[in-house]
Simulated scan of single mutants.
Amino acid sequence: MIILKEITALETYSVRHPVLREGKPMESCHFEGDLLQSTIHIGLYNNAALIGVISLFKTKHPEFKSDNQFQIRGMAVLKHHQKRGYGHQLLIEAEVIAKKYNCKVLWFNAREKAVGFYEKMNYKIIGEPFEIEDIGTHFVMYKKLN
């Protein structure tokens, strides 16, 4: 049984660490803004086990005119649960929540290997690729919400 619910920043670490920060200290799972009241963390549970996370940060990207934007950060699904549609469910839930807050633009820095996944969900690349030290090539991707 799949359940999506709001969780704390600390709860995201059990998924962020092995997927996004493998081999790095646990402290690297903390993102600036994680503890702000405006930040929303969502967990995806499969039979009561947390297997996926996504976080929404109220952050404005200078490329977009709208003042009401959320940045997605820390989206991850545990490796042995990937390619089963859970990432899709997390992203849909993030869009639903963002719309409740009247968000006009969802954006994020996508790892190069994840671009195809996001493009299938109608996210678009803006600008040129860039490097994040010790992580790799990224692209800013976005979707305008109605």
Rank of each mutant, 00 (worst) to 15 (best):
A114P: 03
I132K: 00
T39S: 15
Y86S: 09
G127C: 11
V115P: 02
V77I: 13
Y118L: 09
L91K: 06
F130R: 08
G116C: 11
N102M: 10
L36A: 15
V15G: 00
N46G: 02
T59Q: 13
L35C: 13
N146A: 03
F108S: 09
I7A: 01
F57T: 02
E6S: 09
V15Q: 03
H138I: 07
Y101W: 15
N47K: 04
N109G: 11
I97P: 01
T137W: 09
Y86P: 07
H30I: 14
F139M: 06
F31E: 10
N102D: 15
T12K: 03
A110C: 09
L50I: 03
Y142R: 10
T59W: 06
G87W: 04
F64H: 01
N46K: 14
H81F: 15
F64R: 03
H17M: 05
D34M: 10
A110P: 00
A48S: 13
V77A: 08
F64N: 05
M1V: 06
T12L: 00
P25K: 07
C29N: 05
K24A: 15
Y118Q: 04
A110Q: 02
C29F: 13
K100D: 06
W107I: 02
M26A: 09
H138T: 07
Q89D: 14
V96W: 06
I3K: 12
A94Y: 05
K58S: 14
A48D: 11
A114S: 10
L36C: 10
G33R: 08
E95S: 06
A110K: 01
Y123P: 04
L44W: 06
G74Y: 00
G43M: 02
D134S: 15
L56Y: 01
K24N: 05
L10D: 06
V19F: 14
G52C: 07
K60I: 07
T59V: 14
I42P: 04
R111L: 10
I132C: 08
F117M: 08
T137R: 08
I54K: 08
N102C: 14
H88P: 11
E133V: 07
K5L: 01
G74D: 01
E32I: 15
E32D: 12
A94T: 04
C29E: 07
E32N: 12
I2N: 08
N109M: 04
G23V: 12
Y45H: 07
E27K: 11
F117A: 11
V15N: 00
S14I: 09
E133M: 06
G87V: 05
A49K: 13
S55W: 00
V19Y: 13
D134I: 13
K24V: 11
H88W: 11
Y86N: 08
E27F: 11
V115Q: 04
Y45S: 00
I51H: 06
F57C: 02
G85C: 08
V15C: 06
H81N: 15
V105K: 01
F117H: 05
T8K: 01
C103K: 10
I125D: 01
G136W: 01
P18A: 06
F70M: 00
R21K: 15
K60A: 11
I126D: 10
N146M: 14
F139H: 07
V105G: 00
G127Y: 10
L36R: 12
I2Q: 07
Y86K: 12
I54M: 07
E128L: 13
I42V: 14
R84D: 10
